[in-house]
Nucleic acid binder design. Structure first.
Lengths: 140, 140
DNA sequence: GTACAATTTTGTAACGATTACAATTTTATT
DNA sequence: AATAAAATTGTAATCGTTACAAAATTGTAC
């Protein structure tokens, strides 16, 4: 894992205690957490932590490319410490979010309109995961 | 354009006046409108229309495959009368949403996890559109 | 090391999109 | 025409997110 303080500094961000904690959390939890989940997880470690700080910090991280926002869940903003291009699958049944690699990024990006400046791509899948398919079969 | 009443009936939906009006609006406005935009546009034509009805109807339409929800805008739900697979580009500068065809759907879908049941795919792009690129150049 | 300025954090209040819910209206059925 | 079922309506509530101003922390200059 990257050295948090160094990495944040490289990204132009002062590595405060709160920012470091949030960065560490993102780096060690590839679970696409929401701001609230991060807040709940860190408030024991940092009792004075404010939810506003978590929101502000994540917005700052997104602006500086430290994390990505994932648009797969409309009910709340989800964040991803892995900023490399990859796809996300959401199981409509159990809510699980599964990361998958994209074998051919060029092909995926090739559908973008001509002449635009492309900053980010998101490839999202929705359906039923294998576990839920099995469970549904067993319950019949 | 499809016959609205017939099409809704085919989808298992009773073609009420409100539903027809919302369907017609979607069929004639490929602008990925929000529930509120549809409500504002239709309330002259149907003065008794309730915003709740628009929300309910759109949710029903999504459940019956009449329209799709597009996840490109986190601030509000956007809907698309075109349920064929295609990509969306959002200009972070002017907010324009551009539709583009996907030349190779198989390749785009091939990154989905193995064994899942895939119901929907969304390919989203974010960046700056050509108009905004030009404007930015001219203003320097 | 102290004083001042800049940045960050915090808590509360506000906002806005969406949903819950119960009442009313419309439509279908007998 | 009477009744039941379905759709619509309006209001209130919910919940994620943001605005804002005060407090705390950090960096800089002397």
């Amino acid at each position: 894992m990257k050295n948090g303080a160094k990495y944040l500094a490289e990204c132009g961000l002062r590595p405060s205690m709160q920012r470091l904690a949030i960065y560490q959390y993102m780096a060690t939890h590839p679970t696409h957490p929401t701001a609230d989940e991060i807040f709940e997880a860190l408030k024991e470690q940092i009792p004075t932590l404010s939810k506003t700080t978590v929101y502000n910090t994540l917005k700052l991280f997104v602006a500086h490319g430290v994390v990505d926002e994932v648009f797969i869940d409309r009910t709340s903003e989800r964040f991803d410490g892995n900023t490399e291009l990859h796809a996300h699958f959401l199981c409509s049944n159990c809510g699980a979010i599964i990361d998958t690699p994209i074998a051919s990024p060029e092909t995926v990006n090739s559908a973008a309109p001509e002449g635009v400046s492309l900053a980010k791509t998101q490839l999202l899948y929705f359906g039923t995961c294998t576990k839920c398919i099995e469970n549904q079969l067993n319950n019949n």
